Computed example of a mutant assay.
Amino acid sequence: MTKHMKNEHHNYTLFPFILKTFISIIFCGSLLALFSNNTTTDNKVHFTPVVPTIYIHGYGGVFNSTEHMIQAAEKTGAAKKVLIAHVAADGKVTYSGTWNFTQKNPIIQVLFENNTAEIPEEAKWLNTVVEHLKSAYAISEFNLVSHSMGGPVTLYWALHERTSSSPILKKFVPIAGPFDGVIYIDDSPNTNSLASNGKPKIQDNAYRAYYQYRMRFPSETHILNIYGNLEDGSNSDSLVTNVSAKSLAYLLKSHVASYQELMIKGADAQHSQLHNNAEVNRAVIKFLWNR
């Protein structure tokens, strides 16, 4: 066979391959355009990864503990709940719902069957959910909204369960988080106080442990710390004192990307009402999705 004949044979056999490759390139380009939502003026297309938001309840929490906040977000069109992660008492996680990648701001609602478990245990369960979302949906970042003890659970996760390969906690919104004691257990109204630098005068054992490991918290995180003041003289939401909630600042304010606080005042600032509070909903939605 001559050199010329070899070239002819080579060209004809490559034609179907080249055609298929060309079609594949067009198809992949179309997919990229579908999932990309950000084109800059320099004509470079940037793929923006989907950032889900996880909602977790507090001690004794149930479906409705976070559902009202989720519904408020859905009503604005800012986000949509796609999955419910049911965590059994043995830590096994099952999911209900459907998440397809066309949903820009998906919400995952986490429900702990054993809703009175200790903080370290729930932090492990939270880690199971986060790692599953990473493996199943390839997430690299996520937001988290917590109520009550869900705040310390998230903090404990970040300090002790998170690894260098974990998805980045982009935004964290603790609502009514007891970071340095709970009324009726190890705190009481108007007993503790904060120094000018934010350091609490009285620190429980858990808080001292948080302080010891505080630098493990991801520095990329933006935090909006929301707490309630009934304005009845207790400087609390009936269960968490303002000092306990605000003590988070001394741990993380100088370490994270940004830190904000929001005090909700009045009767609707009661501990269990904060997750049904319209002012809280507006603040969370604006902070997370700028809506």
Rank of each mutant, 00 (worst) to 15 (best):
H160W: 08
G91I: 03
F47V: 06
N11S: 09
F142V: 13
G91R: 09
V284G: 00
V284N: 00
K20E: 04
G91V: 06
R282L: 03
F35S: 03
I70W: 01
L194E: 04
A245I: 04
A123P: 06
W289H: 06
V130W: 04
S193W: 06
V51G: 03
H147C: 10
E8Y: 08
N7I: 11
R291N: 07
I223H: 05
T94P: 09
H68L: 12
E8H: 07
A195S: 12
N143P: 11
K286H: 14
Q203D: 05
E220F: 04
I26K: 09
L194C: 06
V62I: 06
K80S: 12
H271K: 04
P174Q: 12
Y55S: 02
S165L: 10
K199Y: 00
V51H: 08
T128I: 05
W289P: 04
A267H: 05
F17T: 09
A73G: 14
V182H: 02
Y211N: 09
G60K: 09
R214F: 10
S272I: 11
K20Q: 11
T221E: 14
G177V: 04
V182S: 11
T154W: 00
L194T: 08
A33R: 12
N225V: 10
N242E: 11
N38V: 02
K124I: 08
V240S: 00
T13L: 01
I108F: 07
P52C: 04
A176H: 10
G181T: 02
V240G: 01
L34F: 15
Q212L: 05
V50Y: 11
Q212R: 10
G91F: 06
E141F: 06
F287L: 09
Q103N: 13
S146D: 09
N190W: 08
T94K: 11
H57A: 15
N115R: 11
T41K: 13
L251W: 10
D268S: 14
H271E: 06
A283K: 13
S254Y: 05
T48E: 15
Y213V: 01
I18L: 13
I70M: 00
L32R: 02
F217G: 10
I25Y: 07
R214L: 01
F63G: 00
G198Y: 09
I84D: 13
N281F: 00
H271C: 05
L19W: 14
L159G: 07
S236L: 07
L144Y: 02
S36C: 08
D237Y: 04
N7S: 07
A136R: 08
N64F: 05
N225S: 12
V243P: 08
K199C: 05
Q270N: 10
S272L: 13
Y259Q: 11
H132C: 01
A73Y: 01
R208H: 05
E161I: 11
K134F: 13
V82R: 14
D204Y: 03
N37M: 05
E8V: 06
N281K: 06
N64K: 10
